[in-house]
Computed example of a mutant assay.
Amino acid sequence: MQRKIYLATLVALSVTAISSVYAAKTIENDALAVEAAKISLTQAVTTAEQHVGGKASRAEFEKHKGQWVFDVEVVNGKKVMDVKVDPTSGKVIKAVEDKSDHDDDHDHAD
């Protein structure tokens, strides 16, 4: 009888622990976290394109330095710019040239 109670308790604790880990991971899931954003991905892309004066080639909602941001890659001529847009205010937080995305004959990862 003691063994059955112990086993049932162990199973219950395991299920609780697994549920907690799963819940923590789903909160960190980009697709679910975007629900808290005040602007849409489309609005972030438009803001980034206007800020840099180019066309977006990639956009995603991601955690950057502990903060959720829209990360938009914008191409302007031969420059590739990495633009971070605040999901709450819709303002550009940062725009820097992304030198790692410049194609050359030695870069096969792109």
Rank of each mutant, 00 (worst) to 15 (best):
S100Y: 14
G77Y: 01
N29A: 10
R3F: 08
S19I: 13
D110K: 05
G54R: 11
K65T: 02
I39V: 03
G77P: 08
V85K: 05
T9M: 09
A8Q: 11
A36L: 05
T88Y: 06
D110F: 03
V80C: 11
D86S: 03
K91I: 02
A24T: 00
P87L: 09
D104Q: 03
G53V: 08
I39D: 13
G53H: 10
I27A: 15
H51D: 04
T88H: 06
A12W: 12
A31N: 14
K65H: 06
E35F: 08
V96E: 13
H51R: 15
V75M: 04
K63G: 09
G77V: 06
A95G: 08
K55I: 04
T9Q: 03
D107Q: 08
E49R: 07
K91F: 01
Q2C: 08
S14D: 14
Y22F: 14
K65D: 09
A37H: 06
E35Q: 11
S100L: 11
L41A: 09
L10Q: 05
V45I: 14
V74P: 04
D110T: 01
V85H: 04
V75P: 00
V34L: 04
K63E: 10
S19R: 11
V15N: 01
V52E: 04
V11H: 04
H102Y: 14
D105C: 07
V45P: 07
V92T: 00
T26W: 07
A12L: 15
E28F: 01
K65N: 10
A24L: 01
K38V: 07
V74Y: 01
V72Y: 01
K84H: 09
V52S: 05
A44R: 03
A56N: 12
A24V: 02
V21R: 14
V80T: 09
A33F: 00
D103W: 10
D30K: 13
A36F: 07
E73H: 15
T42I: 11
K91H: 11
V21S: 04
S89A: 15
E60C: 01
D30V: 13
F70T: 02
I27G: 11
E60M: 11
D104C: 13
A24R: 10
V83N: 03
L41K: 06
E60L: 04
D30S: 10
A17K: 00
V69D: 14
V75Y: 13
D98F: 11
Q43R: 06
F70V: 03
I5G: 03
V96M: 00
E28P: 05
K84Q: 09
K91M: 14
A44Y: 06
V75A: 09
